[in-house]
Design a protein around this nucleic acid. Structure first.
Lengths: 260, 260
DNA sequence: TACGCTCTGTGCGCCAGCGTACATACGGCG
DNA sequence: CGCCGTATGTACGCTGGCGCACAGAGCGTA
């Protein structure tokens, strides 16, 4: 596991910490240290909105154990989720692509920690560090695949399968079989009415795949849930797992979402 | 209008030609010339498949007056379009992001010309030319917005509005009010049955917005069609139109899709 | 303990799009 | 000219999700 000691510089992190974000963990020490000087640990709380559509991006965020979902707003309509970002990713891709404003809303879905860096500093680092560019480019590709798959999934698959997929994706990112989430919110994510979520969730619960109680949800049978989900889950996961990443000293270092 | 003479090098293009692809046209002369040595003019014909999902990308294409649509395949299902590329864009984004394989199918929708370059050469140029990087980054962002909007559109809007949007998008890219296209194909694009397209197209025709006859479609009333389409059309168009591009000698050079 | 808020479950009429089948129109070709 | 393949139009039963309304259930708080 990659660790970094902040011995040479007075840092906001006083102790030896594992790098709990995959993008950062994949950087060579030299590049990470440079970045680290500008990184600020923050706590994200459920419901917080990090980006509003059309507003300038102030910070780039690297979630560690928090979870953020990206929503697109369609004229009056309730939102639709088009991306889910956890420790495997980052928020603020448009900056890396030369755009100042976020086209989407970033909503904190699971409270937790993240590292953030001011936009100007991020851009400076991004220009300097080829490894950072590589990692971020890889992640952008991953996210494009994710959006694409989600688009098709939303079009073709039924609520129950999509719900199962969403739960699995969330599990992978928070690395836990339990998390908080109301059906109301889930409706937004999936772009369906709350009642549709209720029906689908009830069905999954009857099949003993999940347990649901007042916003607290537990996955009881991951295998079964994967079977209930559409293939879209595997497709996106495969793209992530197969992607080569990091400074290739140890290729087995990052085999899956659940590894740093 | 930007023109390039190929006076200093024996070139595949023997005469002075306007650069009919926006991405290329936005490059400074120096960068364009370097690229030009490796560019090969090709003719794309309707139905041709440029990329198969999972296969390595052999060339990067810059359509000039051809039209290519990007389709994602979902297990057995008929395809779903998630991008439409004309003279304003390029094919082969994954290469620029460090991935060798195309995740989507690229299907030639409208016969016409394009410029292409071998992947290895493209990567060389991409690494060398900051303006090329800037342009492509801008375009990647544009395309992410496009996919995002399409995802939401496919979820929320009805076939008739989506059809209208698709026709307008195509018009912008081929710069003509007429083009060939069967309802069968349109069904794939929109992810609906052919009969649904028939109904929607008939409705638009009854309203004198379009004229349809055996695969030959004409837009009669662009204004009316825009009114019939969902806002998604404007949203994506605005992102394109507002984006600053090119070597900023003449900012009014590229106000819209219909300008080089 | 009682109230109120939030979250979840159920019912019902409605409609867009599905899936399928079949009918018609156009146009190229022998 | 007649044939055939392709493109388009129409019909009909089915179903998933919409939109709305309302009922119960858990939990915090006064």
């Amino acid at each position: 596991m990659v660790c970094v000691t902040s011995q040479r510089r007075p840092s906001t992190l006083k102790r030896i910490v594992p790098i709990a974000n995959s993008l950062l963990a994949a950087l060579p020490d030299r590049d990470y240290r440079r970045l680290h000087a500008r990184l600020e640990p923050v706590t994200l709380t459920f419901g917080e909105v990090l980006y509003h559509p059309g507003d300038p991006i102030r910070h780039v965020y690297f979630p560690t154990n928090s979870l953020v979902s990206l929503l697109t707003l369609v004229e009056g309509h309730t939102a639709l989720e088009i991306g889910l970002v956890g420790r495997e990713g980052m928020l603020g891709i448009p900056l890396a692509l030369g755009t100042k404003d976020s086209p989407v809303r970033a909503l904190v879905q699971g409270s937790g920690a993240a590292l953030r860096i001011e936009s100007a500093h991020f851009l400076g680092q991004f220009r300097q560090s080829a490894p950072l560019q590589r990692e971020i480019h890889r992640y952008i590709h991953e996210r494009m695949v994710q959006i694409t798959q989600t688009a098709a999934c939303n079009r073709f698959h039924h609520v129950e399968a999509r719900l199962a997929r969403w739960l699995l994706m969330t599990r992978d990112r928070v690395q836990s079989d339990q998390f908080r989430l109301t059906q109301e919110l889930l409706g937004c994510m999936l772009g369906v009415l709350r009642v549709a979520v209720t029906k689908a969730a009830s069905a999954l619960q009857r099949r003993k795949l999940i347990h649901y109680r007042r916003g607290q949800i537990s996955i009881l049978d991951g295998q079964g849930l994967e079977a209930a989900a559409c293939r879209c889950y595997q497709v996106v996961k495969d793209v992530h797992d197969r992607a080569p990443r990091g400074h290739s000293t140890n290729p087995t270092e990052h085999p899956s979402w659940s590894t740093i």
